[in-house]
Write a protein that binds this DNA or RNA. Structure first.
Lengths: 208, 208, 208, 208
DNA sequence: GTATAAACGAGACGGTACGTCAGGTCTTTCT
DNA sequence: AGAAAGACCTGACGTACCGTCTCGTTTATAC
């Protein structure tokens, strides 16, 4: 299942692909090749080795084919990185809210320590230069994770494990914010211990 | 007072300027003009309207003059933004650690809501594409603020207001991280209330 | 009556149109629309505003429909400009050869001073870049006029008004060449007086 | 000595080259290389193998260097073809006007039968699509030859060999026009005999 | 009637060249 | 010898058309 996030002035690929249009249908192989090329180029030489011409060349595709489908480099990157990633989220249920949260945070930290980490930081950074990108990143990455966390927290509140008055939104950011901060700032390591300690610090005092 | 952070392959401006060199001394006005031009350009058209050519043109200076003084765009930006900003930090002392922290956080949030906010987020973002930049940003912006916070927290610990076992580094990130996260993510507003609530959530349970 | 000039690898429109083929017959309206579109585009923005895509778009026709009927831009232009023009030639008979020739030349000059003039010069010019075009232009425009002139001259020779030894081909070019030259070179105006003077200069001394 | 014909929005090369400017002077080798590349490309593959990118590549020069010096393809071609050609004109003096003219025409025809021929026809043709080009071509090629011919004719008139009343401008075109016409029209060959016959036809009857 | 055949419009395809912009370097003259 | 100017090569940008190629649809003749 592909993206639901629309990108600037461009019908979604699926919409174009599946609908009964007149005209030659867009080649679905090209779509995959372009995204694959984009991923490879970023992996090989960093974010600014990523040129449209380079992508097109490696994908064995004309530049126009790229431009026909994506309005800018950023949205290619979004699609390239979130093709499969988006869906896999974690929603543990150990019976203890704090434990659930700790597991979630641990997994999140582990994820960011892997190959995904640098991509996420790049995407978050890129969003500062391109509101479109930022929007897409929020919708496809940040929000899904915030929702999960909110669910776990709300479950904790209902069970009476977490105090009723707690502002859930702020709590979520108190948990996730520091992780993103270390990811971007690189002023301190993103360890499992950090996750644990962070949960301890934030959650202590919130329990009913 | 100028930068202490060394930048790639370039003698510091002051060193060159003050020493008794043979040859024409570097024009000190050019230096200021270049930084001013950089600031203006970013303000007017965002970060990617910032070209070396543009800076040189607006500063009424040759491109070579720019390249002679800074090795890359990033370091110009650093100097441009941290000329005066760096020093003004806040170090309140109300007698209550939590209150001191709240004041610090409020001031920090206020600062980021002003014109500085977008610059900081841009710099933090830019660091993801340029390690040099990231290093400078950490040293000139992030660390000074972490140090302040650490001092306040340590004072709180010594006074017995905060539990001895608390990991100060993690605590600092637990306080600052969420702020940076909202600054960058823009998924929720950066209000004074947010600062207060955040301090409440994080600090409750840590007090001795 | 349509073109008899064969064009590269393409059955004539009429042949296809009138024959009893299976399959949908070529739409005759499209044919006219395409030629009309071509004429309009050239008139509006000159010869290099003439793109196949533009023609197709303005004619409300798919590009394939254009390509199916003409092998290249040049032959569209040929058909577009010579649809009606070709046939109207002048063949005066005043009794005097020199007078007939003068009338012919006057009419020719008048024609080239009208809207046709620039088209002819464009077509002649275009022929330098496209042998196909040149061939068609020769056959459809140049030769018919040369033939007329030859007829008038030969009649003059038979009547004893023009000397027997005169090389008719060269004489025809001596009359028409200068007119085309002024049309293309624009170094001097194409007036009726020019036609008269030219005939005077060329014909004097040729009369028996 | 280089061109006096100014070209759209561009200072002449010499002016820029010889003046005492600050800044790096334009590389004179590049100038020659570009023109040479242009000549070669036209010779190899005709006029529409002539792309700016191709010229730049073959000249070992950046596209910008080309665009900095010439405003369009046409003016490159003009410079490329008229670097040396322009000056060599023929001005015979046999004592007989008709003989002088015949020699001039023979030489002209011979010239056009050589490698220059196709270039001239291309340039004349090109002028139909680009007024700038046409202007330059008139000034650099057509007019010099018309002047020569006029001189020879006027000398003939003064010597009493040619009738006083003859319109010199028309006579010149009567001589040259047919040659250009056969060059462009290719409906008949451009032979020495043609030149002779043409002179015979045109000049007979004009002699005093 | 039901194939079969061809033309239709639409529009995607891989390409080439366009003219522009910025990069970072190099080479002048001027101060 | 630094400053300012400006030319140098490189390489990517985003656009316009090229001529070809599917598509799904329409309109004929031929079985």
């Amino acid at each position: 299942m592909s993206s639901k996030i629309s990108v600037k002035g461009e019908e979604s690929f699926d919409a174009v692909c599946e609908a009964k249009h007149p005209g030659r249908p867009r080649c679905p192989v090209a779509h995959q090749n372009i995204l694959k090329a984009a991923r490879e180029l970023v992996e090989e030489g960093g974010f600014d080795c990523l040129t449209i011409e380079g992508i097109a060349a490696r994908a064995g595709v004309g530049k126009t084919t790229v431009y026909r489908r994506w309005p800018n480099k950023a949205s290619i990157v979004m699609d390239a990185f979130f093709e499969e990633v988006s869906s896999r989220t974690s929603f543990p249920d150990t019976g203890s809210a704090r434990e659930d949260i700790r597991l979630q945070m641990r997994q999140f930290v582990a994820e960011l320590n892997g190959p995904l980490g640098c991509k996420i930081s790049l995407l978050l950074a890129n969003g500062q230069f391109d509101e479109e990108m930022a929007e897409a990143f929020r919708a496809r990455w940040i929000e899904p994770r915030r929702s999960e966390a909110q669910l776990v927290i709300k479950r904790g509140i209902e069970r009476g494990e977490i105090r009723r008055e707690v502002d859930v939104d702020v709590l979520v950011d108190a948990l996730y914010g520091p992780v993103y901060f270390r990811l971007l700032g690189e002023h301190a390591p993103l360890t499992e211990t950090f996750a644990d300690t962070l949960v301890e610090i934030v959650m202590s005092g919130l329990e009913g």
